[in-house]
Amino acid sequence: MSTSDPKVIAPLVVGIFGSHNGRDFTAPFIVAFIVTMFYYGLNVIYPTMVNIFYLTPEISRGYELALSLPGNIGLVFGAMLLICFGDVLRHYWWTLWISWAGVLFWGGMMAMATPSNKGLIIAFAFLEQTFFGWAQYLSVAFTQLGVHQHDLGMPGGLAGVARYAGGSLAQAIYVSIMANAQSARFAATLRGAAISAGADDATATALLAAFPLGSAAIADIPGVNEEILAAVGSAFQWSYAHALKITALSSLSFGGLGLICCFLCENIDGKTNQTTNVFLENDVNADKIEFH
């Protein structure tokens, strides 16, 4: 029976997931799976917010590029904080759930996004990704160090699976939530906005049908003026504000489950030391290998 045989692999994987009632690997695996969902969630919410609320034809390319930096800088900053201070602070179990709580809190605060609070939301995006940068890489460490060093390879591979699978699932969920919430809200508010700006019922109905088709279709509608377009444009932005809110709040359900799993994780303080459990066959310490 080869090592690639399912009869060999299946018991190994099941054994890892069941180790110590799931606290050694299953709980950290779920944490690593869900934490990536916050990264992709912000990468759905923040660029949409920038494109809909803040970018205009007058905005320079340099300023447009600068708007893309807060989340990316926050991620790197959080990861660097873990690298520089993680071993100094230790207490990894505490820093895992504290950093996770920060991701959950600031991710939820992204629900406050509106067309008029750019500075506040940029700060929230930076803070969310700072906590994410710490929580992301620490969750991988928990996933790999939860099991014995002899089993290090398999948890490492499964940790990678958790990150990519969580990201793919998150993108599908968040894009779907945002699209559905925005279209429903815009359909409900466009007519009222157009009529309040002076459009008649027929013009409002025509605008509702033409808006998804672009500016050329809107220009062909009789009776449309700048005031009506401004009102409809404002309704369009606020429909996205509503969709962003729903999308950000939807992340809290995943985050709550992840926070529970953080509490269930085994502490890894005792394993973050200079002890080597696995040696190479061609190493000077090959005689210390338990299994050849």
Rank of each mutant, 00 (worst) to 15 (best):
Y46E: 06
A210H: 07
G156A: 05
W100S: 11
F85H: 03
S99V: 14
A184M: 04
F279I: 00
L104M: 09
G198Y: 07
A219K: 15
L55S: 05
E58W: 04
L81P: 08
A194D: 01
G102H: 06
D5N: 15
V140T: 13
E64D: 08
F132W: 05
I121E: 09
Y137H: 10
N277V: 15
P222C: 04
F254R: 03
C265Q: 08
G119C: 01
M80Y: 10
L259E: 03
G255T: 06
F38Q: 06
V147S: 11
F142W: 10
Y63Q: 04
P155T: 08
A199Q: 04
L208M: 13
M110Q: 12
L89N: 10
L55W: 00
K245G: 05
V284S: 12
G146F: 02
T26D: 02
M1I: 14
L65H: 01
V50S: 01
G156T: 15
W134C: 11
A159D: 00
I221Q: 02
G214H: 03
I34E: 02
W97D: 05
I246K: 07
T26K: 09
L65P: 03
L145Y: 15
Y63T: 09
G74P: 14
F236W: 07
F17Y: 09
G167W: 10
V224K: 06
H242N: 13
G41F: 07
F53H: 13
D287F: 01
S68Q: 14
G160A: 00
G146S: 10
G41T: 12
P47D: 01
A170V: 09
A123M: 03
A193H: 01
I98Q: 02
T276W: 09
I173W: 13
I195C: 02
I16H: 13
L169W: 12
P11S: 09
C265M: 05
L257N: 02
T56K: 07
G119Y: 08
A101C: 07
L42P: 06
H20D: 06
S176L: 13
G78Y: 13
G41Y: 08
L96E: 14
E128F: 04
L65N: 10
A286S: 13
V232D: 00
G153E: 07
A210P: 05
N117M: 13
L208K: 14
S251Q: 11
A125W: 01
G22N: 03
A162Q: 08
S183K: 15
G233Q: 11
L252C: 08
A204Q: 02
M1Y: 07
L280H: 15
F85Y: 11
Y39A: 00
E128T: 14
F85P: 03
D200N: 14
A101Q: 02
V76S: 06
G146M: 04
H242W: 03
V13Y: 12
A10D: 01
S253F: 15
A101I: 15
Y240R: 14
G41P: 05
S183W: 03
P222L: 02
A123Q: 02
F126I: 01
G107M: 11
E290N: 10
M154V: 15
W97E: 03
P11E: 08
S168V: 05
M109L: 14
Q237M: 13
L65A: 09
N51Q: 11
A181C: 09
I45T: 09
A135N: 14
G258S: 08
M110H: 10
L152R: 15
A123W: 04
D200H: 02
F124M: 07
